[in-house]
Amino acid sequence: MEVAYYPGCTLKTHAKEFEKAALKAYRAIGIELKELDKWYCCGTVYSLAKDNIMYKVASVRNILNAQKEGFDCLIVLCSMCYNTLKQAQEFIKDESNLARIKAFMDEEEYKGIEILHGLELLKDKMEEIKKAVKKPLNRKYAAYYGCTLLRPKSVAIDSYEKPSIMERLIEALGGIAVEWPLKNECCGSYNIITNKEIVVERVRHIIENARQRGAEAIVTSCPLCYFNLKECQKDVKRIYPGFEEMPLYYYTELMNEAFNGKFDKGENNNGS
């Protein structure tokens, strides 16, 4: 099965391994992620100001373009891009909003397109996933959703207080999903640019909580959460010397590990 796929800027650079692993993992269960011909930066994060049209142009343009390329379903892997595009879609469901914003682009009519996150595609594919597993993971993982996958309610891919998609994926891959309360707690997001100390505190809080519940690794879907959690661990260690580092995975990397029997990291690119 072939689906249209929107990568977003980060997946092509910082989070290359996320995409590489995704293409391989989805292919293994029969889904071909076909990248859109033309796509633009989604303009994360979604602008909440009611009167701010310009900040929404980038996202809307992507949606209309995907439709122009003939797709009626669009898969997004980056959680932040997913959140932004989905909220933009809610925005243009209102006819008057659509009319105002179309004035700024060449794209045509909006007929409606389904925007899904990569994890949603896997909801009904648990059997295929189980079949594709060569070596069960056998480790305790904490599924970390962050905020963008579950909030606001209009974009949530699962229950925003008790999500279970990633847990079911982990179990299907042979791992043990750990129950922990901070699975949907914000990592600090873009504060990493301005107030790194805040993110450091958040990261420590999240990792310690996961560890307390027995997790041996954290699984995530958002490149920024991944980056924050990875980058700040050294800072946490500096401030709290007893802190032990916690390994981090993208969920697609986990899928590959289970499917291929070894961990396929791919290139780890820190350049921009």
């Binding site: 800027c9 910082h14 930066c41 994060v45 891009c81 490149p223 920024l224």
Partner: peptide
């Protein structure tokens, strides 16, 4: 924020988000 002081080696989503906010 001062745009000159942003650490450019950070992921785009963080930079774009920070710039927008």
């Amino acid at each position: 924020i001062d745009l000159k002081k942003i650490n450019k080696s950070y992921p785009q989503i963080a930079i774009v988000a920070a710039m927008r906010k």
